[in-house]
């Protein structure tokens, strides 16, 4: 069953959601921020909600250089509600969750975070449907909101989502239900679903790995970390000890496969020494290794990498080339 809330009542809903002061909303264009009376539901935030599940700095344990003192674990605390999540970002979290299935910190965060998705206008750089993502399915979300003219059509997807429905909401009439269904169908009708995945699943690994196109496509790449840091599905991490005096904290932070240090062994050997090898690894991981393992590509088509790449590299060119092998 769906619910309807007049758009002018959005603020009171947000205030209701923020009763524990743990509401997070999109902040203009940069990313997501604590709710301070403003919410932006237009445009695509540059940073995804990944940072609330794999934070920029996740303390794992703290230790002291004193004999007999046992390190104490750090666990994330507190519950969060994130409003205005892009459905593709939420889907990305479900993709990461498969890999982090047994990770204490990630699962703790997943349990303690409620995601409320809002369907936005499709932007030029969006290509989620081609990656097999359907925003109307609301995967990974607790509530899905479709803004339509001056009302918000609200669909709770999980029990904990139902508890957070606005007080002023009324049940949707048949007309309004139809409005939602129409929007969904018209979106699905125009959606482009790529036949590439079935093909790539069957492609042999080695010819893809050794394909000659990697050299040409990787030439402009600067090997910076823009695509991996902005990507909502990239989940690689680094572990560092931050030490001051005799005390220290072991932290986990995002790492990027584009960096030389990422694959550097302690022996000095580096299996991915060349820029080409690092470039190839990123796309092979997303569109072959992960695909083979879980049956879906590790990409939700948000288009952030294409938007931000300083070298003008486009995911589609690489996918096209991979599909032709």
């Amino acid at each position: 069953m769906r619910w309807v809330l007049p758009r002018k009542d959005l603020e009171s809903w947000l205030v209701f959601l923020n009763r524990d002061e743990n509401l997070i909303v999109p902040d203009g264009s940069q990313g997501f921020l604590k709710y301070q009376g403003k919410v932006f539901l237009e445009g695509k935030p540059r940073l995804s909600i990944k940072e609330f599940f794999l934070p920029w700095r996740e303390p794992l344990l703290s230790f002291e250089a004193i004999p007999g003192v046992i390190p104490t674990p750090c666990l994330p605390t507190g519950k969060k509600i994130i409003f205005g999540v892009l459905p593709c970002d939420a889907k990305a979290i479900t993709l990461i969750a498969r890999v982090y299935e047994k990770d204490l910190h990630f699962q703790e965060r997943l349990r303690n975070t409620v995601l409320i998705g809002v369907i936005r206008k499709k932007e030029e750089s969006c290509f989620c449907t081609a990656m097999g993502v359907d925003p109307f399915k609301g995967e990974g979300l607790d509530i899905l909101v479709l803004p339509k003219d001056d009302i918000l059509l609200i669909e709770p997807l999980t029990p904990r989502g139902k508890e957070l429905l606005p007080e002023g909401a009324r049940e949707a009439s048949t007309e309004e239900e139809n409005l939602y269904n129409e929007a969904m169908e018209s979106f699905r009708k125009t959606a482009f679903v790529s036949p590439l995945w079935e093909k790539l699943k069957k492609t042999e690994l080695l010819p893809l790995y050794e394909a000659p196109f990697w050299e040409e496509l990787s030439f402009p790449c600067l090997n910076c970390g823009v695509c991996t840091y902005l990507c909502p599905t990239c989940y690689c991490f680094d572990v560092q000890d931050e030490v001051v005096g005799a005390k220290g904290i072991r932290v986990r932070l995002p790492d990027s496969c584009m960096f030389l240090l990422y694959s550097q062994h302690a022996s000095g050997h580096n299996p991915r020494k060349t820029p080409l090898a690092r470039f190839r690894n990123r796309f092979m991981h997303k569109f072959k290794y992960y695909l083979d393992e879980y049956g879906e590509p590790l990409c939700v088509g948000c288009g952030r990498c294409n938007d931000a790449c300083p070298a003008g590299i486009n995911l589609w060119d690489i996918l096209k080339a991979m599909g032709e092998v």
């Binding site: 902040d27 990313g31 604590k34 609330f52 934070p55 920029w56 700095r57 303390p59 904290i249």
Partner: peptide, 14 residues
């Protein structure tokens, strides 16, 4: 001075 924080770093814009 760098201080050791036990809190995670999530809200960079605050």
């Amino acid at each position: 001075r760098k201080v050791l924080r036990r809190e995670p770093f999530e809200f960079p814009y605050l």
